[in-house]
Design a protein around this nucleic acid. Structure first.
Lengths: 158, 158
DNA sequence: TATTGTTATACTCTATAACTATA
DNA sequence: TATAGTTATAGAGTATAACAATA
């Protein structure tokens, strides 16, 4: 088993473990791990459109919409019409949303700390860098999915 | 933004990107990314019990069961009673399951390659190592969740 | 024409709790 | 008593396609 073969499963195992523990931590606030990510994304980039939110969360507009409906119901988020684009809606945290987010951030503290403690100084930065490179490499894979493979060589040769 | 704060989101982005691309690759075979993981787990450890399967997949017995029901319906997997423990059931790939798995593995080839190509020689091994350490650190976090904090010191002091 | 968002719909994964059968 | 698995149930995220309104 080479690193190439193990990497996907190792990535999956690490993420799912984090995801489950996060869910457990946030449960008492009635918020899921994914909803936390949405709140965190809003917390650092106010007044995003739903589309922009989906991109930043590595998610899908219709998924984001479903999540927003739930979060609006629990009053953590509100949506307004976009100031210049009447099609779009901007999303932002409510006062309660900001307050809950701070509590959630604190509740997740020991998880983030536990992740860091498993690494040597400097390794966390390296790990983040690896993950970023990996994501963007995969993303460009998506763009070049099935190129029609035009055989230009033949034409050149004539 | 420190590495500690960014690590969870970077991990999530990398995993979700991989997960979506995998789903897209496997769709033509009627298999999801998670089902692929189950098949892969069976492929390298035949005749596992459902419980063991759940552990190795970083999943849940009832989730695994739901997946097995689907995979049994598409004839990729079969379940037999355990030879020595009548409560348990062993799961293994059918002949069709092994055949499809090989095709899936090939279909995922370029994704794995793309991940590796984004890294320098040796970095893949390092990344896998980081992810493993991170998982086990988080797992031990789970065990020590809310210890009742028994104050034995008082008793010792008397 | 292209884009933003909504709606409807369906599927998969997830997880808890109560249950049966067996160890 | 503890464990393996099943069942019922519920909820959350995911994704596609058709649609309306707007750019």
């Amino acid at each position: 088993m080479s690193a190439q073969d193990e990497l996907p499963l190792a990535l999956r195992a690490a993420y799912l473990t984090l995801h489950r523990l996060s869910d457990a931590r946030f449960a008492e606030f009635g918020v899921t791990a994914d909803q936390f990510v949405l709140l965190a994304t809003l917390a650092r980039g106010q007044a995003l459109t739903q589309r922009e939110l989906a991109v930043r969360m590595t998610s899908d507009p219709s998924t984001v919409r479903a999540m927003l409906v739930l979060l609006e119901k629990s009053q953590l988020v509100k949506r307004d019409t976009h100031p210049t684009d009447a099609r779009a809606r901007t999303v932002c945290l409510t006062a309660a949303g900001r307050r809950v987010f701070q509590q959630l951030w604190k509740a997740g503290d020991s998880l983030r700390a536990s992740m860091i403690q498993s690494l040597q100084p400097g390794e966390a930065e390296l790990l983040v860098d690896f993950l970023r490179r990996l994501s963007s490499s995969l993303n460009s894979e998506r763009l070049t999915e099935d190129p029609p493979t035009i055989n230009t060589a033949v034409e050149v040769r004539t």
